[in-house]
């Protein structure tokens, strides 16, 4: 089968790739670009562990074809640090104890980042609504909510 040429900016780096037309963005990130921060947990869009930002919008990368996002600007968890400094969300997740097994963490942080990018100081209710897009089996979400609140204040 013919491959498709795509150019994607991933964490501010341009990648020109020949991908399979039926390749998901999650596969491209993990298998081709070795960016394994986004996780495959359900593979069907029901959990959010694979969430990355595509042109600033949080998408489940397991439901997105790489061919669809040709030309897009993609941010993954690996691209959140700036000049060796953690993103406020990353700091807050650590400080508030919002991380346990860590498998949902990158998707959770990327989902929360999209919220903070459009709404600097979200209310608790808004945070709950947003992160109800993602499943965490470990924490009970309380410390995640606190972390997003805290990051909003930074």
């Amino acid at each position: 089968m013919k491959t498709v040429k795509v150019t994607i900016q991933v964490n501010n780096e341009e990648n020109v790739l020949q991908v399979k037309p039926y390749e998901t963005l999650l596969e491209t990130l993990r298998e081709r670009l070795a960016l394994t921060g986004a996780k495959e947990s359900c593979g069907m869009g029901a959990c959010g562990a694979c969430t990355v930002l595509v042109n600033g919008i949080p998408l489940r990368s397991c439901l997105v074809l790489t061919a669809e996002v040709d030309g897009a600007d993609i941010t993954t968890i690996e691209g959140l640090m700036k000049d060796g400094k953690l993103h406020p969300l990353q700091e807050a997740f650590m400080e508030k104890g919002a991380v346990q097994c860590g498998f949902c963490t990158s998707g959770m942080i990327m989902t929360a980042k999209a919220l903070l990018d459009r709404n600097k100081r979200p209310t608790k209710k808004e945070i709950v609504r947003t992160i109800s897009s993602n499943i965490c089996r470990c924490t009970g979400y309380k410390k995640i909510i606190e972390a997003v609140e805290e990051a909003g204040k930074k």
Binding site: I77, E78, L89, M94, V99, S106
Partner: peptide, 12 residues
């Protein structure tokens, strides 16, 4: 802060 959390929030 848990010792394992840095690697987990950076995706590493």
């Amino acid at each position: 802060v848990r010792s394992d959390s840095l690697a987990k929030v950076t995706g590493e």
